[in-house]
Design a protein around this nucleic acid. Structure first.
Lengths: 215, 215
DNA sequence: ATTTTCGTTGACCGGTTGGTCAGGTTGTGG
DNA sequence: CCACAACCTGACCAACCGGTCAACGAAAAT
């Protein structure tokens, strides 16, 4: 035991800090570059430049381009799954689905790059996250379908197909991230303001919740 | 004038046929490869192999990779604009928007690759079709917004924001093409059957038309 | 029959990419 | 103070990419 154990707490490893900080720097840069150029169009050199590190340093922390990409995609998947909490423990569909729309719209606004990387990955046939789709996502989906079906059986909402409701929720919320450039262009080249984001959320909730007979 | 003008009608140019056929072959292969690999990940060699032609032959018909890509994207844009006809001359929102959903879902099913190429292009900041967004698409959008606003003013539907309704229509219909792989995975690895496509269209129309108070 | 145009293609090239590596620096534990 | 481990990086390389080109065959025009 060291004479002063506090040291290892006060300075929990400067080496570890460096590693964590650089990995964060690289992952943030990679997320942006992968989103803007796609996996094939992204180059390690560009990611390195954006992270402010030499290219060789990237390969010190991430063995291959594919490893780095896999980490970026997994990171987004985690954020997505966290939004599931909004869905649970809701007393009624309006509250649960409304909160889910809010959460997904917040993710679209705060992690637009991540959403695009996910979309690209799926569009290209999910070569690196196919197992996630077949396990975690499938389980999550079936769980929510069961919840929605319960609401329908209890007469709390219209008898729509829960599966297609989920697809519509995913599509309409992620659209604000994935097609953000198109939306911005149609908004006179300006990004949506705070007020416009709030209006988007309100419009979506109004249409969807009324559409499923939850309000 | 040739002695027998019929020849030029009976054989309207074998050369022209060859050109048209090869361009079609290349464009179809390119659409698929660009959709599956993205612009950066696609290679002229792969497109050539899929078209069954030598790579040098591609460059005889299309000067550069970017020219070929531009042609593919434009092609999709045309198909999209044609679906606009479903929207027009409709007596009421349920008919017009319902027909538009049907048309867009049919495109998602028959041109999934094209939809993905478009999505990729927009996600990457629309580097080659920005002018289309700022002219044709913006005009089209404003025109439909005016139509929807008229319906609202006439009390034929709920007073929702027409812009966000359009975004929801685009997002929810294109989702079945762009995220087709994810949907297929969640459908036990099977593509949607005729019946399932019909159910998807019916579910979408039910939710959206009820959501905007059109039924 | 001959010239010309169009279509075809293998071989080639400069530039770029992902990845490697040897040799260096910095911080840490003993 | 020393030895070891973690971190850093310029220089380099084999592989691959988009694109070029000269040579050739086939059809069409003259």
């Amino acid at each position: 035991m060291p004479p002063d154990a506090q040291i290892s707490r006060i300075k929990p490893g400067r080496r570890t800090d460096i590693r964590r900080e650089n990995e964060r720097l690289i992952l943030d840069a990679a997320e942006r570059v992968f989103a803007e150029a796609g996996f094939g169009g992204a180059t390690m050199q560009l990611i390195a430049d954006m992270a402010g590190l030499p290219k060789a340093n990237l390969h010190y922390y991430f063995a291959t381009k594919e490893d780095l990409y896999r980490r970026v995609v997994s990171q987004i998947f985690e954020i997505w799954l966290d939004a599931a909490a909004s869905f649970d423990n809701a007393p009624d569909p309006a509250t649960g689905i409304g909160a889910y729309i809010d959460a997904k719209m917040d993710i679209s606004r705060r992690h637009p790059h991540g959403s695009k990387v996910w979309a690209s990955e799926v569009m290209h046939g999910a070569p690196v996250i196919q197992d996630y789709l077949e396990t975690t996502l499938r389980d999550w989906t079936n769980g929510r379908i069961a919840v929605i079906q319960t609401w329908i059986d209890e007469g709390r909402m219209a008898p729509i197909d829960p599966r297609h409701l989920l697809y519509m929720l995913w599509a309409s919320t992620q659209h604000y991230a994935d097609f953000g450039h198109q939306i911005e262009t149609l908004n006179n080249g300006q990004p949506l303001s705070d007020r416009q984001w709030a209006e988007a959320k309100a419009s979506l909730k109004a249409m969807i919740l009324r559409g499923i007979g939850a309000i």
